[in-house]
Nucleic acid binder design. Structure first.
Lengths: 225, 225
DNA sequence: ATATCGAGTGAACACCTGTTCACTACCGTA
DNA sequence: TACGGTAGTGAACAGGTGTTCACTCGATAT
């Protein structure tokens, strides 16, 4: 998604290239403040209504400073997509080491997902809302990354005995339906959280049932129709 | 959803109540222009970035005229939700009389859905995008109406032999998953239409397969877990 | 010690916004 | 034919917006 080639701490080499270590640290500090401020504002605003001045105000810098870091709001949005997607991949890494050992695989999966959504509500809210964004570039980026995410999930699914003989296309279809369920769960959970928190358990239960339905559906599915 | 009690042509009675027939016709004409203009603008804007002045400009009236018809953009948005949902229910009426007679029920269902989305792209785009709207009242209205729609669909599903012994909760779960598939299909189709029209057939095929998966999943699902 | 670089500043620009106000002009009624 | 109600007007208000500009001023490199 065109993430810039993070300078960071690139060893003691490159003497003439990067300006200096502490200088770039300072720079990345306001950059971070801008990104965090933007994400905070996006909790109840959509990105095509996010004003540059709001973001700089929320980060405590002058409006013009924005342009030292991003070319436009869309540009900043693409970075947020990258970061939110990194969070999603983090979820899958957590799940891999955790879920396979669990007794009830589905129940544990949903539990991990719900905990992750709660712990990174900002990122999930952003993905869920801008999934249908009016800002084309952001919408496209999220869609592409979610597709990629689904193919990664497909390779994980392939380890399950019920489906390990399926052709790739069928695996991906199932994985995409599972990703759709994840996104839908995030959407519903985020609404329940700040609206009717007592319904959380109900939502968790329903999500488990849906995931079970998708999972057991594999038993009566004959690939390659 | 609190639709106002349309005066329209209420017969020759109510002499002192409504102002007059042609007067209200004129009024509803600009009202319609405002709604249509708003919907057109919402093709590439989200509703929390829709300006009253844009709407009135697009409808060819002065800004202040807006307030003769709506209290706010949110208010107008709720009317649009009602109208878009009426379109969705129209889809289901079309499908009922058409699909049951078809040879391949699933293929025909998807065909009807796709045709309907194409014919009412504005409404579907609106529902799909504002489904996750940053405008709370609109988001809630769409969600509630979609839930209602799913329960209606559930009563239709109940006629299918594979599921007609299921408890209501299971039927509703399946119906909600089908509605989710419909919304997702609308989202993907609308993007494909103005982005890579040659991929439409591929999308249709994939949607059919997903619907088949959900449908055949019923065979290995044991209700009341 | 001095020169250079660049992140951040604050003012200024022209523009767009929501909302209010007194007003006009017309239609239906009496 | 005169009257009352009201949809639509256009101007005005106080804001908020994106973007550019010359500038500061501290840290880095020589």
């Amino acid at each position: 998604m065109g993430r810039p080639p993070r300078p960071e701490r690139s060893g003691s080499r490159t003497p003439a290239a990067s300006p200096s270590p502490t200088r770039t640290v300072d720079k990345s500090r306001t950059r971070r403040a801008l990104l965090d401020g933007a994400l905070a504002l996006l909790a109840d605003r959509s990105i095509d209504n996010l004003a540059i001045r709001e973001v700089t105000r929320s980060a405590g810098v002058a409006p013009a400073a924005f342009y030292r870091h991003f070319a436009s709001i869309d540009d900043l949005g693409l970075i947020l997509v990258d970061e939110a997607m990194a969070t999603l991949r983090q979820l899958m890494r957590d799940a891999r080491s955790d879920v396979t050992a669990a007794e009830d695989l589905i129940q544990r999966s949903v539990e991990v997902l719900v905990d992750h959504i709660k712990a990174h509500a900002g990122h999930y809210r952003f993905i869920v809302r801008e999934h249908f964004s009016a800002v084309r570039s952001v919408r496209m980026a999220i869609r592409q990354d979610l597709r990629l995410f689904a193919t990664e999930l497909a390779t994980d699914l392939a380890r399950q005995p019920a489906v390990n003989t399926w052709p790739t296309a069928d695996l991906i279809m199932l994985a995409e339906m599972v990703v759709g369920l994840m996104v839908d769960t995030a959407r519903r959970l985020l609404d329940v959280l700040d609206d009717a928190p007592d319904r959380e358990a109900e939502l968790v239960h329903d999500t488990e049932r849906r995931l079970r339905y998708l999972s057991q559906g594999a038993l009566s599915w004959r690939p390659r129709p």
